[in-house]
Amino acid sequence: MKICGPKLSLCGLIVSVWGIVQLVLMGVFYYIHSVALIEDLPEFEYENPEQFYTNVNNAYNQNAFNCWIAACIYVFTLILSGQQFYANSRSSTA
């Protein structure tokens, strides 16, 4: 079954591979609490260091999981566009 053409499916393949690699890595970096990503966290209020630390740790873990979820969705996109690409290449050679 064909839904998208050869160009779109190729595009989807490339973006999916890229997305999986980058989002998984970003998830890992969030999970190990990388300082470089501290600017990309949800904002929150705090009054003392303990509160700050708990909040920041939560936010880091949350973002790590979000990245991994997005990566998982990209796995689906990858499978879908891969199947489309395969279907297109078969129909074009046949």
Binding site: L37, D40, P42, F65, N66, C67, I73, Y74
Partner: peptide, 15 residues
């Protein structure tokens, strides 16, 4: 934008 939102819903947005 999606990274600065809290909760699990930004995952779709991130995608």
């Amino acid at each position: 934008i999606p990274l600065k939102k809290s909760g699990f819903s930004p995952a779709i947005l991130l995608y």
